[in-house]
Simulated scan of single mutants.
Amino acid sequence: MIKKGFICCYSLSFLLLCGCAEPKVLDKVGLITTMGFDIGKNGSFLGTLVGLKIDTNSQKDVVILDSESLSIRGIRSNADNQTSKRLTSGQLRVILYGEELLKNGKIRIAPILTSDPAISDMTYIAMVDGRARDLLHVKSSHIPDIGTHIYRLMDQNTKSKMMPLSTIHEVLHDHYIIGKDPVLPILSKLDNNGVVYKGVAIFKGGKLVGKLNTEQSFYIMLINDKYKSGTKDIIIKSDSSKLKGGQGLTNKTVASLDSIRSRSNIKLINKEKLEYEIEIKLSGRMLEINSPIDIGNPKNMKLIEKEIKKSMKKDIEQLISFCQSKNSDVFGFGDIYRSSVRHSNLTEEKWYKMYKNAKVNVKVDFVVIRTGLND
């Protein structure tokens, strides 16, 4: 009996050791951490690959390879011809697209992301203001690894609610669902060879149709997501004499808020004439306001709350109007219509004709929960 048990254990161990998975020895592979794609000449694609160079004799831990091909898959194959290590994408953290590549509609976002099973659904995606190749070739003493730097920049800004979440999982969901379009963060190269988050790109299907600044991207996240702990400077557009003539280097009245908490709700209130209502409730701590108004006075605080509500409402209405003019439904109005109207048989073509004429009513409720050291 003991002998039979020993034979069974030995056989099981042998089977486990003889698995069919292809072995990948670390010192024989190159781990790609970041990939960038641009439009090339004569219908080709330009690819830039940032990888970890696993070589104890090398002084550099990062290698950057440029490749060109008529297909996206061919970019990595051609890059393999330039290195002694076989490139793998199992450690890929960021995918970047050059602006012209998305603007010309030469490539849709989704197909490229689903072609490699080794790429994680949690990989970040972004658009570059200009060429992805130029951004990935940034040379700066404080950025020894451009791939890791971009990943950490996107990760911390996403977690702090400064940047919309743009993992492959999120982008593919918005890309394939009828009635919602994806957004991508925009990264830009600074003059001092740094990298900065500049706003968001909006799409109609998989084609770039417009760009929004960071102020506008805040409102997209406010509508589409819940804030649990955010920070933001709000520009107050007010006719009140108490809130005019901001102090400092600008004549704009700005209120600095943190500990922002919010929730939003979008309702279809008229399916025949296509009318929606967006209700946003948020609260936050006001740390500073660059106006001589006395925030210790309860009446002044009520005035500030009222004017912030008005300013936010106006900014959101302008944002929605701009997105409608570009036929980009980044808020998911179409998805709400499809789920609310039985037998709608909604198609992309049908929805885009309806969306640009939809009426959207915006309600904003804002409360200052405390005022820093003035409590």
Rank of each mutant, 00 (worst) to 15 (best):
D225H: 11
I107G: 05
K350H: 11
A201H: 03
P182V: 09
P298F: 03
Y176P: 07
T148Y: 12
S340K: 15
Y337S: 09
R86L: 13
S44F: 11
D27V: 06
S67T: 14
S240I: 10
L222K: 02
L49I: 12
A201F: 00
L184M: 02
T250A: 06
F331V: 04
L303T: 01
G130M: 07
P292H: 13
K103P: 01
P164A: 11
S67V: 07
C9G: 09
L46K: 15
N265G: 14
L87P: 09
E99C: 01
V196E: 10
L96E: 01
S291R: 08
E100Y: 04
K103V: 01
N78P: 00
M354S: 10
F218Y: 08
K314A: 06
V367Y: 05
T253N: 03
C20V: 10
N270L: 07
K299W: 12
Y276H: 06
T371S: 13
L172V: 15
L187R: 13
T253S: 10
P164Q: 07
I320R: 00
D61I: 05
N57F: 03
G51S: 12
P185V: 02
L31K: 13
S344F: 07
F45A: 10
A126V: 04
G332Y: 09
V360T: 10
I278E: 02
I289S: 01
K180P: 14
G90D: 03
D55S: 02
R285H: 14
S241M: 08
R133L: 10
V25K: 07
V368E: 13
S115D: 08
Y97N: 07
Y197P: 07
E275P: 00
L102N: 12
R263P: 00
